[in-house]
Design a protein around this nucleic acid. Structure first.
Lengths: 226, 226
DNA sequence: GCGGTCCCATTGTGATCACAGAATTTGCAT
DNA sequence: ATGCAAATTCTGTGATCACAATGGGACCGC
């Protein structure tokens, strides 16, 4: 099944330097240490990654276009902050798009594919038991995109990837602050629906997963701050 | 009301050269002569726009990230072709996102705003009468985004802009080939719903407008080709 | 001790050059 | 005339340099 779940765009092998920088930055934004508000510099990243500033410029420009990074008025590049408004929009967009992707993927998922996804879910449970926030996020990402990728709907997948990139750093900060205790795993219903080939059930399960997972961090994080 | 409907992103004034190039390319992709399949070159655009290749590189990179342009395996940059699959995804994404934007905008639309939108719709009718395909497209774009912009939901607006950029060149080619006769104006229902402050009615009207407008060109264009 | 001002380091931006790969054209041989 | 091969042009990519503007910090005056 899909090995390269990230970077669905422009199926190219992507052997250019700026492509590699793009992937590494994307990985760090989503799973690494780039928290909301963190400022990055072109030359700094270039030196850190061992390349000239040029590929970094292109990668950062691309990430800004995907709203994974933001450029403030003075030209400085930062990881965007989350606001209640933006969070609600993310929640809506996910609920509007992801169940459809899952439904489209259903007919293309082989029983073997489904069991691979089930294994990922086991890993998620282990991560939750161990309080491993990053492991949970990586697993959750893999769980969803292994499914969505099978939909073979690049256009919708691109929209959803952009949405995930926008709330990723916030989610990471949230789990870092409030921990993973209290998080439940709502993926079982999705797995059962997939095994039953129940499209309506899968849509509902994905929708429930989004609502509950996002509600969890939304309640915990956004009540205090504004 | 919103003068700058295009380029919602990163509210900056955008006085940099690559920002200007980006806006001009975007304008041409959507309303100008860039048809699907059209190839562009960095140096060619640079000379044509009277700038160095540098700002063009950044603008093109950004447009590729938004999927308004595509890079083929050999590195050449082209305006992407439309496929039936992609068209269906565009249709779904529009129907999933745009009614929500319209609904969110409703409470912020003043009666004066609504009448401005109504005037735009009059212009659309004139364009349709004259068979002015570009006028129709400009008017249709303004009609929708004058409303959506009032929703003050940048994240969702960005998704919708990306979607429009992806079907814009195809729609232009479609109207150029099949003309605008047969196009009906389904905006009246939306205007009446707005005047009534009828959120459900507005959602339904926008959804109907999308379904019928897109169905019109989808039926005409995508049956023959593949 | 504290506030303001000047200076320098750092930032993103744009231009120019070098380079490798691809595509097109040219030229030759059949 | 036609098919193939070589060469030349053209492509995007990356590096380096120059520059204006912004930000931070040091220094001085009160």
């Amino acid at each position: 099944m899909a090995e390269r779940v990230l970077n669905s765009q422009a199926g190219g092998i992507g052997s250019t330097a700026h492509e590699a920088v793009y992937r590494r930055l994307r990985e760090r934004i989503f799973f690494g240490g780039f928290l909301p508000g963190h400022a990055v510099t072109l030359r700094g990243l270039a030196e850190e990654l061992g390349v000239s500033p040029m590929p970094v410029r292109e990668a950062v420009r691309r990430l800004i276009a995907e709203r994974a990074l933001a450029m403030q008025g003075n030209g400085r590049v930062v990881v965007p902050l989350m606001t209640r408004d933006k969070f609600e929009q993310v929640l809506f967009a996910r609920a509007a798009l992801e169940p459809e992707l899952a439904a489209r993927a259903l007919s293309r998922l082989s029983p073997a594919d489904i069991e691979v996804v089930a294994q990922v879910d086991d890993d998620i449970d282990s991560a939750l038991l161990n309080g491993d926030a990053e492991g949970y996020m990586r697993g959750n990402f893999r769980f969803h995109f292994m499914i969505y990728r099978q939909a073979e709907a690049d256009m919708l997948l691109g929209l959803v990837e952009s949405v995930w990139l926008q709330f990723g750093p916030f989610m990471r900060m949230a789990y870092g602050r409030i921990g993973t205790q209290g998080l439940e795993d709502h993926h079982q219903a999705a797995l059962e629906a997939m095994r039953r080939r129940d499209e309506a059930g899968l849509r509902a399960a994905i929708r429930a997963d989004i609502g509950q997972g996002m509600g969890f961090i939304g309640d915990a994080m956004l009540s205090p701050l504004q």
